[in-house]
Structures are given as C-alpha cells and as structure tokens.
Amino acid sequence: MNSEQRNHWNGQHKILTGIITKPGAHTEAVAIALELHTALYASEESNGQQATYEDSLWDQLLESTVRSYPVQTPGSRNSIVWHLWHSARIEDITMNILGADREQVLHTERFADRLQTPFLHSGNGMSERDVAALSREVNLGALAEYRRAVACRTRSILSSLEPGQLGMKATPAQFERVREEKAVLDSEQWLMDYWSGKTFAGQVLMPATRHNFVHLNKAMQVKQKLQK
C-alpha cells in the first residue's frame, strides 16, 4: 500500500466514521466498510485486482522475518506473526461474538487446532515468553487461512446487516460468552470495558478496519527493518 492508497484509505475511513450510524446512509456505509476491509486482507488468488496491504506484506517475506521476536520498532517489540494473529483474533471475537452473536471462526473451522498454538485469547496481556512461543510455533499456512476465513465471515456479516443494526450494542449474554470462551484474559478487563461502550458500528470502525490497518503498519515496519 503506497502513500496514495493509504491517503485514500484514511479518507474513506473518515467518511465512514461520519455516516456509519445513520440508517439513511446504511447502504453507502456498508459499501465503504467492505471496500476498506478488502484493501487490508490478502486477496483471492488470480483475481487480477490490485494488491492489498496484506499482499504487499507477504510479498518476498522471509519466514525468519515473520517469526523474529523481539524486534525494536516504533511502538512495538512484537513479531509479524503476533500482529497478524492478534488482529485476526480481535476481529473474530468482536464481529462474531459481540456483533453477530455467532460462533467464532476459530472454533467453527477448527483453527484452534490447526494453528498449532494453545493460545485462544485475543493476545492482549501476553507475557514475552508466550509471544516468543507463538512466534516460533504457530503454523503459518493455517494463520494465513485463518485470516482469510475471518475476513470472509466479516464481509458476510456486514453484507447481511439491516439499517439500524449498526447502532446496536452487545448484550450482557454476549459478553459472558467472551468470558466463557476465554477469548480475553482475566487480567484484561479494560478491553471488555472498552468494547462495552461501543456499538456494532464502533466495532466495525476500530477492530474490523482501523485496528487491522494499525497492526499491518507495525508488521510492515518489522519487515522493512529486517529486510532492508
């Protein structure tokens, strides 16, 4: 994603922020959200479209670079693996449990086993030892598939929304599911409190779009540092 594409993405996100809670602008808001989301995640093979941000990240990316931890970059020491896994986990939790009240992709498609890592939570509050273990052990092929599956599910959810639904908040029962499924560590109550203040629109604006953008930026910084 070059500077022109980044400026366009940010401009569209600003427009989305201004209209996403307006029922009369529902169709336009969903269309922009889908555009922004598609620009971040890996594209389907041989679709002939312009490379996405994740496409650019994976291009000529070495496995040693992906798994390297810790890495001294602005605002983060985490590995590319962690950034890709964490952003997908956050989206899976918020879009499916708190948004659509559905099962997580992590469970419906057996990614809890396929990723070959014991960590089922969001990644917030992990120890350095755990981040190192995740970076070293996660199955990279399964991680790429997990991200594609999460992205596909999110787009399906967004496309099926009716006007007004973006203004709804998650119920106490949905937050209890997050706890029961151990999707957030007990030590990270601040994250639950943060989510409790957001509508579905807020979840789309931050976890599903902006949050992914931020972590792809950090992952790209790692790549640029290690593969000059």
Rank of each mutant, 00 (worst) to 15 (best):
N7A: 15
W9L: 08
W9F: 14
K14S: 14
K14D: 14
I19E: 10
I20A: 12
A25L: 10
T27L: 15
A29W: 05
V30R: 08
I32W: 03
H37M: 07
T38Y: 10
A39Y: 03
A39H: 06
A39T: 11
A42K: 14
A42R: 12
S43R: 15
E44H: 14
S46Q: 15
S46H: 12
N47K: 08
N47Q: 11
N47A: 03
Q49S: 11
Q49M: 10
S56K: 11
D59L: 14
Q60C: 02
E63D: 11
G75H: 00
G75Y: 03
G75C: 04
S76A: 08
N78D: 09
I80K: 07
R89S: 00
I90V: 15
M95G: 09
L98I: 08
A100N: 02
A100L: 11
D101V: 10
R102W: 12
E103A: 14
Q104Y: 01
T108N: 06
T108E: 11
F111H: 01
A112I: 01
A112D: 13
R114F: 00
R114A: 13
Q116V: 10
P118S: 03
H121L: 01
G125P: 06
M126Q: 10
E128S: 07
V131H: 10
L134N: 00
S135Q: 03
V138C: 02
N139A: 14
G141M: 11
G141C: 09
G141H: 02
L143Q: 00
R147D: 05
R147G: 12
R148T: 07
V150I: 09
R153I: 07
S160W: 04
E162K: 14
M168W: 08
A170G: 09
F175P: 03
E176C: 01
E176K: 07
E180Q: 12
A183M: 08
V184C: 01
S187W: 00
S187A: 10
L191Y: 13
W195M: 12
W195A: 13
S196H: 07
S196I: 05
G197F: 02
T199D: 04
Q203C: 12
V204H: 07
T209A: 08
R210F: 15
R210G: 07
L216A: 06
K228G: 15
